[in-house]
């Protein structure tokens, strides 16, 4: 399922809304999660999962082709931990 398919589904279920509004709603939700993570906040959605940001310290990496040492600067990576309820759901069907 893609974002546009998700929008279509929601529009179908909510015939009283303009599709344009449904698009804005979906975008707002993901934008809100994005900006929370950019602030360094956690996003916890019970039953679904939690998004957080993990810090990676700077390290000396190596170019695997040439073996040359490369400095990799400090960075942050988004991380998602599946919620308990969803994890169980994935394993009950099929």
């Amino acid at each position: 399922m893609t974002k546009s398919e998700l929008i279509l589904k929601l529009a179908e279920r909510n015939p009283h809304l303009y599709q344009r509004d449904v698009e804005r709603i979906v975008s707002t939700v993901f934008d809100e999660i994005t900006s929370a993570l950019a602030r360094g906040d956690r996003v916890e959605l019970r039953g679904f999962g939690a998004f957080s940001v993990k810090r990676r310290q700077s390290r000396t990496g190596r170019n695997p082709r040439t073996g040359e040492a490369v400095q990799v600067s400090e960075k942050a990576v988004p991380f998602f931990k599946t919620g308990k309820e969803l994890r169980e759901k994935l394993n009950t069907k099929g």
Partner: peptide, 8 residues
Amino acid sequence: MSGTTVTR
């Protein structure tokens, strides 16, 4: 950073 939690 702030370390607050965003919810539903």
